[in-house]
Design a protein around this nucleic acid. Structure first.
Length: 564
RNA sequence: UGGGGAAUGGUGUAAUGGCAGCACGACUGACUCUGGAUCAGUUAGUCUAGGUUCGAAUCCUAGUUCCCCAGCCA
């Protein structure tokens, strides 16, 4: 089976098509997503997940979820659970194929024994420091360990002793006997097993020796009959070693294909750096909406579909690139535009009194829930004499290209009436505008003028007496620099964006939002998409701004073109 | 002065000896009861130098730049 897509094939799918054409695996396609359970998944992992699960799906194959749990010192059950949850959230399913490298510990050990018997592995007593010294450098060959030529019998006995817990951590290792002068450092007698008296989240303390990733990964793929083992570029140097193990053992040989990991502007995507952000308190946790973790993005309001679309659009290649975060946000808006119900909310309220509107009068105005989806229907929004509009929507001295409200100017209140600003009320001491006195034209009910006259702007609003109070959290990029990793001196924390979070404690939202539930996403008209935060209570809704709408006026103003 | 990879508009990615295309961004304009959405248009690229060829992003030679590797991490 070969796959044609609307977009051109990437080099990985090309390889698979070719393998299928030549019958390399009998047309079988079997991939796997192999996370280490030592942290939370982020957008970079999403790229790999979409690739592996996506390819399996396209070729009618399978994709396993396999935890690379070979280092009990760093791994935890909590991460295993979180990873499963996140992969499911993205919309992928591994059926009953949930595997663990630790499932194969006994087999791996037997293979190690086999290599010892073949004279291809030995127990080495060098300390970690000595191993480093003996390894040589990039340009100079290493030296052979004095323990390299122990007899098979002695090696077997020592290996058993290691497994039986007779030696302290770090005192010995099992090493492959390859070539200490090899130009590829990974081939200079790499460690296969190390002694670690640690409790493993799955195997408890059944083991006190653990295989290294290098000795485990290729064989795990082999056991699962993975046809295409897709991984990131840094493992390219390891491929000869995996091949060596597979060949020595004479077992099924998956094909490893390496691609470039994702980088995104204005963010960092390494587990170590994300951990620092959390530990040093630069963010509120792994699910902080500013984090590029899947949990953070979920809380922020990202949809699985938006992320999957993004992963498809960025493509796959071997070039080390950095994707513009604008593309991610574009995919987000594209998806949210289709699905998010519209609603009116005023973030920075300015009080407006409609002088000629009856005192105590209330009307229910009909509003469209989603112009992109006629099936979403309509709702009623209460209108009354005292309203709030956005402070940004009024200028006492409007620049040329400012279309919104100004003294003497008429605008439309969405789904309601045309109103004209008659008077500006200011605080006598500060001079701050505190209220606008307006009049409305009763003939424009619903927002259209029977005489056909036009207004240049439509403003969103809420009725003061009916609005619900809400807290809104505005987010911006976590870093001020597009390449935070490249800033000098102290590194990426030097360019943390001090304005990455702005909390507006008292905003007003229309009453239809009363039953809103955590993680629901709305478009606040003219402002952006907002997601209900789990911090919400029945007293007070809390919203996260997922992403703004494209804002032409902001662009004009920022470019200094407001008056031209 | 080792080995393994990679270089196409600002960004990401196609073209596999035959018109350098698509998307994001930026910039125009049209439309609009969201300055949203939508639509139309403009902008801008083959790392360098030679060579092969009727024809080169693609093949060859030399160079340049960038990434990865000296964990008992993955």
């Amino acid at each position: 089976m070969s796959v044609k897509r609307s977009t051109r094939l990437d080099f990985i799918r090309e390889i698979i098509n070719e393998d299928n054409r030549t019958g390399k695996h009998g047309g079988r396609v079997h991939t796997r997503f192999p996370p280490e359970p030592n942290g939370y998944l982020h957008i970079g992992h999403a790229k790999s997940i979409c690739l592996n699960f996506g390819i399996a799906e396209e070729y009618g194959g399978l994709c396993n979820l396999r935890f690379d749990d070979t280092n009990p010192v760093k791994e935890e059950q909590e991460y295993i659970d979180a990873i499963k949850e996140d992969v499911h959230w993205l919309g992928f399913d591994w059926g009953d194929r949930e595997y663990y490298a630790s499932d194969y510990f006994e087999q791996l050990y037997q293979w190690a024994v086999q290599l010892v018997k073949k004279g291809k592995a030995y127990v080495c007593d060098l300390t970690p420091e000595q191993v480093r010294e003996y390894r040589g450098t990039l340009t100079e060959p290493g030296r052979e360990s004095p323990y390299r030529n122990r007899s098979v019998e002695e090696n077997l006995e020592l290996l058993e002793g290691m497994r039986a817990g007779r030696f302290p951590d770090g005192s010995r290792t099992l090493r492959a006997k390859i070539d200490m002068a090899h130009p590829n450092l990974n081939m200079r007698d790499p460690v296969m097993y190390r002694i670690l008296h640690a409790c493993h989240p799955r195997t408890g303390d059944r083991w006190c020796i653990y295989p290294t990733y290098d000795f485990a990964h290729g064989q795990c793929d082999s056991i699962e009959r993975i046809t295409h083992s897709i991984c990131t570029l840094e493992f390219e140097n390891h491929r000869p070693l995996y091949d060596w193990f597979l060949d020595q053992l004479g077992i099924f040989h998956p094909q490893q294909i390496e691609f470039a990991r994702l980088n995104l502007t204005y963010t960092v995507l390494s587990k170590r750096k994300l951990l620092r952000l959390v530990e040093e308190g630069h963010v509120r946790g792994w699910d902080d909406p500013r984090m590029p973790t899947l949990r953070g993005m979920r809380r922020r309001g990202y949809t699985p579909q938006a992320i999957r679309n993004f992963c498809e659009r960025i493509g796959v290649a071997k070039f080390n690139s950095t994707v513009d975060i604008d593309l991610l946000e574009h995919c987000l808006r594209e998806d949210l535009n289709r699905r998010a119900p519209r609603v009116m909310a005023v973030l920075r309220p300015l009080r407006v009194v409609i002088d000629n509107y009856p005192e105590g009068g209330v009307e229910q105005m009909e509003a469209i829930n989603n112009p992109e989806d006629p099936g979403a229907g309509t709702r009623k929004v209460p209108f009354s004499r005292v309203l709030y509009i956005e402070r940004d929507d009024f200028r006492e001295e409007p620049p040329k290209r400012f279309y919104r409200l100004a003294p003497g100017r008429e605008v439309r209140l969405r789904y309601a009436y045309f109103v004209t600003c008659r008077e500006v009320v200011k605080d006598e001491e500060t001079g701050e505008v505190v209220e606008l006195r307006c009049t409305y034209d009763p003939a424009t009910r619903g927002g259209a003028a029977p005489d056909g006259r036009k207004v240049k702007a439509t403003l969103h609003w809420v009725s003061a007496a009916h609005a619900l109070e809400a807290e809104v959290r505005l987010y911006d990029h976590l870093f001020t620099e597009p390449y935070p990793e490249d800033v000098g001196e102290g590194g990426f924390t030097d360019c943390l964006n001090p304005r990455s979070l702005e909390v507006i404690p008292r905003c007003w939202v229309e009453p239809s939002l009363a039953p809103a539930q955590p993680l629901e996403i709305y478009q606040f008209e003219r402002l952006g998409y907002f997601c209900v935060d789990p911090d919400s209570t029945c007293q007070k809704l809390v919203f996260n701004r997922t992403v703004t709408l494209k804002d032409r006026w902001a662009k004009i103003e920022k470019a200094g073109k407001a008056n031209v």
